[in-house]
Design a binder for these strands. Structure first.
Length: 463
RNA sequence: GGCCGGGUGGCAGAGUGGCUAUGCGGAGGACUGCAAAUCCUUUUAUGCCGGUUCGAUUCCGGCCCCGGCCUCCA
C-alpha cells in the first residue's frame, strides 16, 4: 500500500518513495536537555514514533534508521547552570535521563541512533571549514557566520523572501554580520563556558549546524525524511538546508520534510518563557502515558491540537472501551486458524494516507465493534489483526487486566476483594444499604465495581 | 506587513461535488435490587458573501475570525 506524506517543501501530499528501500532514513530534531520536556515536546515524539512504526512495517524493521539527536550544548543549558550552580554535565545527564523515562511512558520506541551534539564537534568543525572554503561562510571577531546571500536557494523551505524577512526583522543586527540574515555557525566561548579548540579559537557551535553535521554522519547526505515541530521550519530547518546543501553542492539535503502542528493548552500558547507549560511528567500524574498518546493521535498531526482536561478524559474513556473489547475477546479460546496476518485494509489505508490517525482510530473502533460481536473460530484472527493495528499506533499492547486493575500492591487487591465479599454477603441478605455503602466507599478510592450476570463482581480502577 | 495552518453538530474530530464518519456527552429503552459495564434507539453541523454546477460542507474568488512562524522554542 502506498504511503503518502505532506511535504512541507512542496506544500503537497506526495507519494513517499525512499532513495533506497533497504535503507530508509529519518531524522527528527530532539530535545535540548536543559529542563523537563513538556507536552508540546511529546507531540513530535508520538507523531514520529507512529511514522517510524509504519515505515518499519512497510520496509522492514532492519531497513529503517531513525535518528533523533540530543542537544547537549546550548546557551539555555549554560544559563540553567549559571542559575542553579549545578554543573552542566550534571544537568544534561539528569535531563536526558528524565527525557528517556518520560517518553518511555508514552510507549515511544527508542530511535536507532541518538547522537549528542557534544560528541560531534569535530564533524561540525569540518563542515564549517568546508563552508568557509567555498565562500558560504566567513570568520568575524571569533565568530563564524553563514553568509545567507551566498545561497540562491535560501528560503525555499519556509517560502520566505529575504527582502521581506529583513523588513520584518525586529532584532538588532550584530555589527560583525555582513548581512543581517547571516547566522552563527560557531561562536567564541569565554572562560567558564563549554568550549572546544577550533581554527577560530576556543568556542562552541551555533544551534543549526549540529543537525546538519549529525544527520549526514548517521544517514548520509540526503535524508528520506526530516521531521520536527512546525515552529522549527524557520529558521532552524531553513538554515540546515542552507548549510547542508552549500557544503555538498548538488546533493539535496532532504527529500520529504514532515512537520507536526502546534500544541496549545486551553486555547493558549504554551511556552517555557510564559511559564504556563505542562511537563510530560505533570501530564503523566493525571493520566497514563497511553491515554496521552491516544489523545495526541486523535487529532491529525499537521493540525493544531488544543490540550484540555476534557480531551484527556475523552481519550481515557475511549481507551477503556477498547481494552474492554480486548478483554472480552480474550476470554474466547484461541481456536482460529493461524493465517498470516493480513492487516486491516481500512485501518492501513487511513494510516498510509499522510498518517491520518484520527481516521485510523475510528477504523480501529470499527474493528473493535466487529470483534465484540464475533463469537466463533474467527475471533482469534480478528483479535490478532485488531492488536496489530493498535500496535501501529502504539496502544493496547498491555494485558487488559493490568490496564484495568493496575499493578498495585497485593494487600490493596486483597482489601478490595475482602470488601467485595462483604458486599456480597450484604446483598445476599438484601441489605442493600450496607452493600451500597461499601460500593460508594470503594468508588471514592477510584475502584468501580461491576456485578456480572453470573453473580460474581469484577472491579477496575479509574483516574 | 510577509509566510503557514485552522474555522464542521453540546464537545472532540475525519472524509466527501449528491447517499452527510467516528468518539465523548445528552435523551429514551433493554439488562440490574440500584448501579457499573454492555446492547438497541435517538438528537443536532459544515464562519460570511459571491461564483462555477442540475446540485457545494467539499471546487474557485473575496472577506471575517482564531492560532503559529518571521527572535530561543517541538
Amino acid at each position: 500500500m502506498a504511503l503518502t506524506l505532506f511535504n512541507t517543501q512542496t506544500r503537497k501530499k506526495e507519494l513517499f518513495e525512499p532513495l533506497d528501500a533497504a535503507c530508509v532514513g529519518m531524522y527528527v530534531c530532539g530535545p535540548t536537555v536543559y529542563d523537563l520536556a513538556h507536552i508540546g515536546n511529546a507531540r513530535p515524539i508520538i507523531v514520529f514514533d507512529v511514522l517510524y512504526r509504519l515505515l518499519r512495517d512497510i520496509y522492514g524493521a532492519d531497513s529503517v534508521t531513525y535518528v533523533r539527536n540530543i542537544t547537549d550544548v546550548d546557551d539555555k543549558i549554560n544559563a540553567a547552570a549559571q542559575a542553579s550552580g549545578e554543573p552542566i554535565s550534571a544537568i544534561t545527564a539528569r535531563t536526558t535521563q528524565a527525557f528517556h523515562d518520560d517518553i518511555d511512558e508514552l510507549n515511544a520506541l527508542p530511535p536507532d541512533v541518538e547522537p549528542r551534539a557534544t560528541e560531534h564537534i569535530g564533524e561540525m568543525i569540518d563542515m564549517i571549514e568546508t563552508l568557509i572554503a567555498s565562500g558560504h561562510a566567513y570568520e568575524a571577531e571569533g565568530h563564524v557566520l553563514f553568509h545567507v546571500p551566498s545561497d540562491d536557494d535560501y528560503g525555499k523551505l519556509s517560502n520566505r523572501d529575504r527582502e521581506e524577512m529583513l523588513a520584518g526583522a525586529r532584532v538588532e543586527v550584530a555589527p560583525y554580520k555582513r548581512d543581517p540574515a547571516d547566522f552563527v555557525l560557531w561562536k567564541p566561548s569565554e572562560e567558564g563556558l563549554p568550549g572546544w579548540d577550533s581554527p577560530w579559537g576556543r568556542g562552541r557551535p551555533g544551534w543549526h549546524i549540529e543537525c546538519s553535521a549529525m544527520s549526514r554522519k548517521h544517514l548520509g547526505l540526503t535524508l528520506d525524511i526530516h521531521g520536527g515541530g512546525a515552529d522549527l521550519v524557520f529558521p532552524h530547518h531553513e538554515n540546515e538546508v542552507a548549510q547542508s546543501e552549500c557544503a555538498s553542492p548538488g546533493q539535496p539535503f532532504v527529500r520529504t520534510w514532515v512537520h507536526n502542528g502546534f500544541l496549545s493548552v486551553n486555547g493558549e500558547k504554551m511556552s517555557k518563557s510564559l511559564g504556563n507549560f505542562i511537563t510530560i511528567r505533570d501530564a503523566l500524574d493525571g493520566a497514563p502515558g497511553e491515554v496521552l498518546r491516544l489523545m495526541m493521535l486523535s487529532t491529525h498531526y499537521r493540525h493544531p491540537l488544543d490540550w484540555t482536561e476534557e480531551g484527556v478524559q475523552q481519550a481515557r474513556t475511549r481507551l477503556d472501551r477498547l481494552y474492554r473489547v480486548l478483554q472480552n475477546a480474550g476470554e474466547v479460546s484461541e481456536t482460529g486458524s493461524d493465517d498470516a496476518d493480513s492487516g486491516d485494509p481500512g485501518f492501513d489505508a487511513a494510516l498510509h494516507d499522510d498518517l491520518n490517525t484520527p481516521l485510523a482510530l475510528s477504523e480501529l473502533e470499527r474493528q473493535a465493534d466487529e470483534l465484540s460481536k464475533l463469537d466463533g473460530p474467527d475471533t482469534g484472527r480478528h483479535r490478532r489483526t485488531f492488536l496489530a493495528s493498535a500496535g501501529m499506533l502504539g496502544i493496547l499492547q498491555q494485558d487488559p487486566k493490568a490496564w484495568f486493575k493496575g499493578a498495585d500492591a497485593a494487600e490493596d487487591v486483597s482489601h478490595i476483594e475482602a470488601q467485595i465479599a462483604l458486599r456480597l454477603e450484604a446483598r445476599n441478605a438484601k441489605d442493600f444499604g450496607t452493600a451500597d455503602n461499601i460500593r460508594d466507599a470503594l468508588a471514592e478510592n477510584g475502584i468501580i465495581l461491576e456485578d456480572r450476570p453470573d453473580g460474581t463482581t469484577d472491579w477496575r480502577r479509574t483516574g
